[in-house]
Amino acid sequence: MRLDKTELALVGLAVLLLLGGMVAPGWLIFLVTIALAKALVVQGVVMQMKAGLVSFGQGLFYCVGGYAVGMGGPFLGISAGLVLLAIGVVAAVGLAMVLGLLLTRYREIFFAMLSLAFSMILYGVLVKSQELGSTDGFNVNNWTLLGQTIAGGETATHVVFLLTVVAAAVVAFLLHRYYRSSVGMTCEAIRENEVRVEYLGLSPRWIQYANYVAAAGVSALGGGLTALAAGHVDPDMAYWTTSGEFIFIALLGGTGSVLAPFLAAIVFSLVRTYAIEFVPHAWQMILGFTLLGIVVFLPKGLWSLFTRHRPEAPVVPAAPQKTSTGGAGA
């Protein structure tokens, strides 16, 4: 298996993070764990963005993943962490397969609003469920990993960190391959011009559908990991402002590389935590100006700082050539 530059960077960064985790203070490990887990949800958003859809309701799958992990113990008697995560992913994929049938008929703002509506309906259902603690949610504890009980304490923080880094790296690796595969390339083509893709004999809708379902699974994994790390789930995970945060991070990073969401999520968390520390009364404003600055000065996201060529799209005649050679790689 030949690895390209991004993949090498990915492996390198994962190893670096794992090594760093041995010396970093607990708060930082936790911050990075949550950031990486959220970045997985953001990957789900980015997958759809690449295909031209902006989901204002990715919190739906984040929440499904989180609640699956939380409910697996008390309701199904399952405590194996990996099984719980898998249940979350399966549940989200199942849900997405149903919702996707309707949602993929929509584009632009209608897709955004409809995805938001579904997310808010789940929020409503959870708020109504007093046995699940309504808005207070409930704690996630007593799970196991490969037969070992992870009871809390410093080890738990490290175990979840390890799990998250590995999961993030694997997903990122697969996503990177996916983006360069013909389906991944078609997604970008759909964003550019859906009608022309249809002329080529492809069905944009079913590609969108597959992409939507896959994105749901990735996001649910992020939700499950967040639940394990934070030890708590609540309906806010499905609230629209949570989904807004994911879009925020997606734009912060840009769609330039599979690494971008991870970078953006960590930068976002650090900016936020220091903003809260130094300007507790106006930290939202700092976030707002950061976002505005990104949109104005780096419309392709933070990632454009790390790319060699100019952030602007190549001149028109060059574009098709570039994409086709890129697609032939790997």
Partner: peptide, 18 residues
């Protein structure tokens, strides 16, 4: 050290650790 409680439980866990 005064901290804002807004933002939900996950974020508060993070801020608590900080």
């Amino acid at each position: 050290v005064v901290i804002d409680e807004a933002g939900g439980a996950t974020k508060q866990v993070e801020e608590f650790r900080n």
